[in-house]
Design a protein around this nucleic acid. Structure first.
Lengths: 159, 159
DNA sequence: CGGCATCCTTAGGGATACTG
DNA sequence: CAGTATCCCTAAGGATGCCG
């Protein structure tokens, strides 16, 4: 296949994927910053407490506070009070379904980094718990075919 | 399944996925801005010319120039001179293999937006050219199992 | 421990004007 | 058409310090 990819021809760009309507643009309104992505990564890894988020992502407290608040406002994280016996109330940040549903996108980005930017190979592998095999994000159509980049087309849904 | 997801337990977070080593962090060094993502979207849609990029993404010329230059420097786009007969030389921005390989991540983000942010349904569908079925980004292990979020585990590769 | 307030620097991004 | 130069504003992010 050529080094470049052409998807056009099926659809007139200007009418269908305006900046305002594009779902990618909408998604980026919610998570377009580095800190937001990395905080979500931590949430997937099981981190729940404020200090752990800040320390493990490597960002300052104010940034962590601001970003976590945004993620809660957008409904990706839920802030839940809990208290261990004899302790005062603390808060845990946990992924909502909406937040958890971003995992494929994070894996896709992470594996792109593995492939093109990590000289030492992947620092972390995502595996299938049941069989131990490595997990990848891939494009697949509803009939189950794995889809190569050249086999894609774009369409505007009927309305 | 519960509303939250726990991946920890298999691996000590602090040693394996430091900020510097994480491939997600590395990927975000290259594309963490809204404009970078949207310019790549346009490149996938087949846009090649400067003005089209700026207009279709909805960003100003200086931003488009700065971001396109970065994407070229990082090797996601290639700036190629071409000339139509009787015209002077112009430049086209085309996806490199490295850039094209980001497509699954873009699709994953786009479809997350479709699902959680687009009230009117997906403005654009990605389909399999050969059979016409809708294409999704999904997590699948090397043995071909589709992997649910609860069936994931993390591991540090042998070194 | 889990933040918020303050101050600062840098990067992202828009507007306008100008050049080959 | 394909940018660059300039100016300005805002958001992202770090450092420090305070507070319940």
């Amino acid at each position: 296949m050529a080094e470049t990819l052409q998807l056009t021809g099926t659809l007139n760009p200007r009418s269908a994927w305006d900046a305002e309507r594009c779902s990618l643009a909408k998604a980026l309104e919610v998570v377009s910053t580095r800190s937001a992505f990395l905080l979500l990564r931590e949430a997937f890894y099981g981190t729940e407490r404020f200090d752990d988020f800040a320390a493990r992502v490597g960002i300052s407290d104010p940034v962590a506070a601001a970003r976590l608040k945004q993620l809660v406002e957008h409904g990706l994280l839920v802030r839940e009070p809990y208290r261990e016996p004899g302790q005062r109330t603390r808060y845990a940040y946990r992924l909502s379904d909406k937040g958890a549903d971003l995992f494929p996108a994070l894996v896709a980005l992470m594996q792109w980094g593995d492939r093109w930017l990590a000289e030492d190979g992947p620092p972390v592998q995502v595996r299938h718990k049941r069989c131990g095999a490595t997990v990848h994000a891939q494009l697949r159509c509803e009939r189950g075919h794995e889809v190569a980049l050249g086999d894609l087309e774009l369409a505007r849904p009927e309305r």
